[in-house]
Design a protein around this nucleic acid. Structure first.
Lengths: 239, 239
DNA sequence: AAAGATCTTTGCGCCAGCGCAATGACCCGG
DNA sequence: CCGGGTCATTGCGCTGGCGCAAAGATCTTT
């Protein structure tokens, strides 16, 4: 394993707290999966045989409902784990993992990871922490979807994305991945039309700069303000 | 510990696969928390010191957004674990746990459970499985909220509740807990008014019988049909 | 460079479901 | 058995955001 990747694994939340030698042991049974271009790491309903840790790129986690509508659950960035959900209980992935461009991940056979967790309980505890966080995040998003209006949800989504994979630039924070209106709509439970209109408004107002599949937040704190506005606001203006 | 409760713990998913003696060990540091009447096991933002396994009753897991709107995440039934989320990462519960009536739970100090998990990795694996399921469930609900209309979501919620805490009766399945229109609204991301109107329609159609805080599904398969209907259906009727 | 394939914008019509208020039903404690 | 509190119903008005279609912009491939 290349040293750079090794240090990335070392920093991954999944392996936090492991010693150097333990990490060696762990990485012994890992396999590198590299995508040279856009493609799937796995598809919904595939047999869940492996668990992944992304080392490079971005992965979109989506789910297709039986009727064909798609929802977008999360973006996986470097260091993050994915594909852990189907592996233990049911034996198939409940979601698809897709990358829009080149990406690299290390992966472990599910059974192998299971025995690693028994050998090093620390890993299991890390998994528990990661899953806990993820539940909280899903709960938050569920709450937003249930109680906030579209504008806030989209603003929140943009900020979340910027925090996760934004790069600071002179004139704002660029969200560093392909991101269509459709993607944002699937994340926030709305339609691409509505997202398009919203972004347009914000762009006109100077809050963002958007191009095809690319969004830069020029005034993030204004978005944050929108994201924190009163909830189902404004029956009537106070007069 | 009373034998009845002991066997309940034995059947709890959290302790699945433990031997008799291991269970003895585990239960040694447990504490019984009994609610004689309606009340909270814990409130959102309380320090997350204990993890609970419900042995009797029902517990509602809710969250209050900063602006005061409440959402209803799940119902905990006997055997299920709750209060595990805040304990490991952040140190406060992100939700409230409330019972409408008498209830009994066993609880463990978070740190104590942590060392139990290191001692018996099986427990940690069980936790991982439970959390995985819960994530899947939240994802499903998120998807429904994002893509289905209210009617379907409420039908789904009723069926879920019936499956979890319904009792078969001569004329249908009674959902065995206090359940207001408001509760259903908070579960499905709508308003109590809309729920009221929906239930009314269904009652008129003979699908359900509802009284104050009590709902019986008389024709569950008809509800299931509603729950499985086409998604964002019906632009125009076929003519 | 031209043809396709995506992605985005925009106008228009429309309705599911919300917000509110007022009334009615039911429960429980004293 | 009464009184106050909680829960449920219902009518009415309204609008946020969806659905669709069609055109425009941008990227990719050959």
């Amino acid at each position: 394993m290349k040293p750079c990747c090794f240090s990335l694994l070392k920093a991954a939340p999944l392996f936090k707290g492991l010693s150097e030698t333990e990490l060696q042991d762990v990485s012994a049974c890992a396999k590198e999966s590299r995508l040279l271009r856009a493609g799937h790491y796995f598809r919904q309903n595939d047999a869940a045989r492996r668990v992944f840790v992304l080392t490079h790129g971005h992965v979109k986690i989506t789910q297709l409902s039986t009727e064909g509508t798609q929802v977008f659950f999360r973006v996986i960035g470097p260091g993050e784990i994915f594909g852990i959900i189907g592996g233990f209980g049911e034996n198939s992935y409940p979601v698809s993992a897709y990358s829009e461009g080149p990406a690299t991940a290390w992966s472990w056979d599910t059974k192998c990871l299971l025995s690693l967790m028994e050998k090093y309980p620390k890993i299991a505890l890390n998994v528990i922490q990661i899953l806990s966080r993820r539940i909280q995040e899903m709960q938050d998003r569920f709450r937003d979807l249930a109680t906030q209006r579209v504008e806030r949800r989209v603003a929140t989504a943009l900020l979340r994305l910027a925090a996760k994979s934004g790069t600071r630039e002179a004139d704002g924070i660029l969200i560093n991945m392909k991101l269509s209106r459709q993607d944002l709509a699937e994340m926030t439970g709305t339609t691409l039309f509505t997202v398009s209109r919203l972004l347009k408004t914000w762009q006109t107002g100077g809050l963002i700069v958007s191009a095809r599949q690319r969004i830069k937040l020029t005034v993030p704190h204004a978005l944050a303000q929108i994201a924190d506005e009163i909830p189902i606001p404004t029956p009537r203006t106070g007069k």
